[in-house]
Design a binder for these strands. Structure first.
Lengths: 147, 147
DNA sequence: GGGAAAACATTGAATGTTCAACCTTTGGCG
DNA sequence: CGCCAAAGGTTGAACATTCAATGTTTTCCC
């Protein structure tokens, strides 16, 4: 009697795998766009978050830019050396440090925004407007469902 | 005259950011499931790919498991030390090395498959069957569109 | 056939990340 | 008040990843 083949679980059926693959691909693309300014993706995220002009604590920042604390500390050390950002002690809570963009940081952030926008446009062109929005919507709701 | 506010580009509008965030979240989940066997996600991928019983070259594997070559070489070194996999020189092309699962590796792979499946089920329960399939479909097509 | 170029995998050094331990400051509460 | 636990951030050592360079083997092509 012919049984349906037991169909090995292909790894590409796993959401975890597809996400990792898509993320890798898109991240590569973004990297290659940001290469013009020689800035790593993580620093682009930091600069973008800080662009709102408010001071952000290290904890907030770490969450927002998807880095864990020690990694962020060291990344920020580098950016301070490059005079892109600076630390200010929070006057109302002296455990906390508030990060700010320097003038140099602001200028760079602006240039990066436009490079990142260029990537986004590129994706939309090759992948489609409709699909892109729909994918974003689903990702947001997936992220929500994990909290 | 009231202008619409210039709406700073929020980072969470970027597909690149949403993908990174979702990937991070789901990867964490998967990690915590695999923790029962103390195996990193990358090794789960390797074991799963090799589970088809065919020998895979390092190059193939690197692509399939989303690692670049030097990283894979070193990961495989560890797995060889743990007697999970072994190298065989390709008889038809002596530049290549074909990777195989050891018996120990096969046993572990089986256990991991069930842990990973448990995560997938968990996602489907909390996020929904429909959304999950739709998200997978969109991710696949995004990945396609980048090649 | 023979020599140059490409493909495959690995290596060592430089770089980046993580884990656990640490210091300081704050908040809670007896 | 005074103590102790928790929160915020940093550090140093262990670990993992990356980049460029290397050694083989194969392919191409004259």
């Amino acid at each position: 009697m012919a049984r349906t083949p037991a169909q090995k679980p292909a790894i590409s059926d796993h959401l975890a795998y597809l996400l990792a693959q898509a993320n890798r691909e898109i991240n590569r693309q973004l990297e290659s766009h940001l290469r013009k300014e020689g800035v790593p993706v993580e620093q682009w995220r930091i600069l973008t978050i800080l662009s709102d002009g408010k001071g952000h604590s290290m904890g907030e920042l770490a969450d927002a830019v998807l880095l864990n604390h020690p990694t962020l500390t060291k990344t920020i050390d580098r950016m301070v050396s490059d005079a892109l950002v600076y630390r200010v002690q929070d006057p109302t809570d002296r455990r906390r440090v508030l990060m700010h963009l320097s003038d140099r940081g602001k200028v760079l952030a602006k240039r990066l925004t436009s490079l990142a926008q260029r990537q986004e446009d590129h994706i939309i062109r090759s992948y489609g407007d409709k699909s892109t929005s729909e994918l974003k919507r689903l990702l947001e709701s997936l992220i929500d469902s994990t909290n």
